[in-house]
Simulated scan of single mutants.
Amino acid sequence: MKKSTNHIFLFVFLFLGISVFSQDKKKFTNIDGVLAKINPNSKIDFWVLVYNNYGKNKEIKVSGTKQDYLPQFAGFNLRPGEESFYYIVSSVGGKIIYITDIRELKEFIGKIDNVEEAAISAVLDGYLIDEHFVDVAANYYEDKNNYYLDLGKVTSKECPYQKSHFTLTVNKATGVVSNVKENGTYIEVYTKNCKNNPRLLKIEKKEEPKDDPKKQPVKKRK
């Protein structure tokens, strides 16, 4: 009886632990919301985050008193495979500056001040905030010292196209990634052109039916 009670207690303890852990996780709902949380370290007059989707510009965030600026025709793409990009317009000492590539974005962010900037920094290093698979590759939790980011990564563009998800431990004080844990593949996409497509291999390996001697045509006597 005591052994059974211990098992029940252990199960309840594990269940509660998993429930608490899952409740602590928060989701990055979309990339727009993450970029809007940027807190530039340098003193600027204003800054505007613009999203260009198929040639149409949309202002996602305006901070400060906006001045006139020219629309840009190129920028940094945080959604692989989509015809879209972002750019930032800012003003420092009255001079308009356009931020259109990853290197410039990293300089604009500067020191990591929040979890959103930690996620952007990881994206600039090759990870992705996967808006279509938020539960596995676009969420986080934190403690006193670290952010723990669950992000995705394209690990193969060959056959099959593949995405894996990782947990990155980011130090709050320094912004340094101290640990990366791979959690496995969550997407595998095979196309008709993939020679290693399991479905095609199964068809190729399928043996042709052998001729049944009983069903062979009877030879006629001359």
Rank of each mutant, 00 (worst) to 15 (best):
K2W: 05
K3I: 13
S4M: 08
S4W: 11
N6V: 07
H7I: 15
I8F: 12
F9A: 15
F13G: 03
I18N: 09
S19R: 13
S19K: 13
S22M: 10
K26P: 05
K26V: 09
K27C: 10
N30V: 00
N30Y: 06
D32R: 01
G33L: 08
G33S: 08
L35Q: 06
K37T: 14
N39D: 12
N39Q: 14
S42D: 15
V50K: 00
Y51N: 14
N57T: 14
K58V: 14
I60N: 03
I60S: 01
G64P: 01
Q67V: 11
Y69V: 07
L70H: 06
P71M: 03
P71G: 06
F73T: 11
F73R: 13
G75F: 03
F76V: 06
N77S: 06
Y87K: 00
I88V: 05
S90P: 02
G93Y: 00
G94C: 07
K95V: 15
I102D: 15
R103H: 15
R103M: 14
L105Q: 00
K106T: 06
G110S: 08
N114M: 03
A119D: 02
A122N: 09
A122P: 09
A122E: 12
L124R: 12
G126V: 02
Y127F: 14
I129L: 13
D130Q: 13
E131F: 09
E131L: 05
E131D: 13
E131A: 10
V134F: 10
V134S: 03
D135T: 12
N139L: 01
Y141P: 00
E142T: 05
K144P: 02
L149E: 04
L149T: 02
D150N: 12
G152R: 03
K153P: 04
T155D: 05
S156I: 00
C159F: 02
C159M: 13
P160K: 03
Y161P: 07
Q162H: 01
Q162L: 03
F166I: 04
F166A: 05
T167Y: 13
T167K: 10
L168R: 00
T169S: 08
V170W: 01
N171T: 09
N171S: 08
A173R: 14
G175K: 01
S178A: 09
K181E: 01
E182K: 09
E182C: 03
G184E: 02
T185K: 14
Y190M: 00
K192A: 12
K195C: 05
N196I: 06
N197S: 13
N197P: 07
P198N: 03
R199S: 10
L200N: 02
L201H: 09
K206R: 12
E208C: 08
P209S: 11
D211Q: 09
D212N: 06
K215E: 10
P217T: 07
P217D: 06
